[in-house]
Amino acid sequence: MSDSDPSPLLKTDQINCRLEGRDLLRDISLSVFRGELVGLIGPNGAGKTTLLKLINGLWPVDRGRITLLDKPLKHYSVRQVARVIAHVPQITALDFSFTVQQIVLMGRNPHLSRFELETEHDRQITEHAMQRTNTLHLAGRLINTLSGGERQRVLIARALAQEPQLLLLDEPTANLDIQHQLEILGLVCDLTCRDGLGAVAAVHDLELAARFCDRLILLHQGIIHTMGTPAEVLTSEHLRLTYGVETQPYADPNTGYLRLSILAPRKD
């Protein structure tokens, strides 16, 4: 997990994204390595979702370059990207009557040609992905009958069925209760340290980010304000300048994890 690692999974070099004359992101340079969970934090509108979409190739980059496995991202086809990167979107309304198994099998799409049906091999991979995310018992359920935590696990299972090397997660814990937040981030953390995936997750909850992520990237108004270990990033000064909130970080006496005392909005 150090910069001396010769080949990052993904590297962005001074990338920019403009929309309607406004800079959404400016000069973003970062690297993601195998086996690490990188947390993307920052106030609303800082550009977290945009950055994930650029990395996934969903939106075009205006300037700069993205390198995936030592090859420029723009030289990949949509299919090829999907074999390396899996994107777990924010939970939106999933109002269709596909079964969980069908949804997870969709993760095999980038590996199947137009003329192929899923084989036993694909079925085994999806079954394994469902075991890993504890969703196997939901296989026959309709996706629109699941709870928020269950849906999020199913979407992660679908991502795993892609057999990706890099996992992108957009607010994976939004709208979940504390138990499911811990469960989902624990799962992602496990996937990075045990299975060696790289992962980038946009996370709102700073304390959860500090607890689970190896590194944090703090975005503010479209630029990287700071990046580093949670302790380096989550300081009173950084949070005052970006979130505009007075905080006091401390180590939780029970768990040792970094916590934040939130004191007041910034006094100018």
Partner: peptide
């Protein structure tokens, strides 16, 4: 059907 960005990140042009 499940969404255009979903589709694209699953390899659909």
């Amino acid at each position: 059907v499940i969404g255009e960005e979903n589709a694209q990140s699953l390899g659909v042009n």
